[in-house]
Amino acid sequence: MENTSIKEIKNLFPDEWVLLGNPTMDESQIDVISGVPIFHSKDKKEVCYLGRTMTDNFKTVTIIYAGNIKKIRTNGILRRL
Rank of each mutant, 00 (worst) to 15 (best):
N68E: 10
M54F: 08
D31P: 03
F39M: 03
F13Q: 00
S5Y: 06
E8M: 06
T53Y: 14
D56W: 07
K7N: 00
T62C: 11
K45C: 09
V32G: 05
V36K: 14
N11T: 02
K59H: 13
I9L: 15
I9C: 06
I33P: 06
N75Y: 12
K10S: 05
R73I: 07
M54A: 05
M54T: 01
T60I: 04
N11Q: 06
I30E: 13
I6H: 02
M1C: 01
Q29G: 00
I30W: 12
S5V: 03
C48A: 05
T62L: 04
N68I: 06
M25R: 06
I69W: 03
P14T: 02
G76E: 12
Y65V: 00
G51M: 04
D31E: 12
V61L: 00
S41C: 11
Y65W: 02
L12V: 00
V18K: 07
R52A: 09
F58Y: 14
T24V: 15
K44W: 02
S5R: 02
N68K: 07
I77R: 13
I77A: 10
V36T: 13
I77T: 07
Q29D: 04
L81T: 08
L20T: 02
K44R: 11
K70T: 14
E8P: 08
K59N: 15
V18D: 07
G76S: 12
M1Q: 04
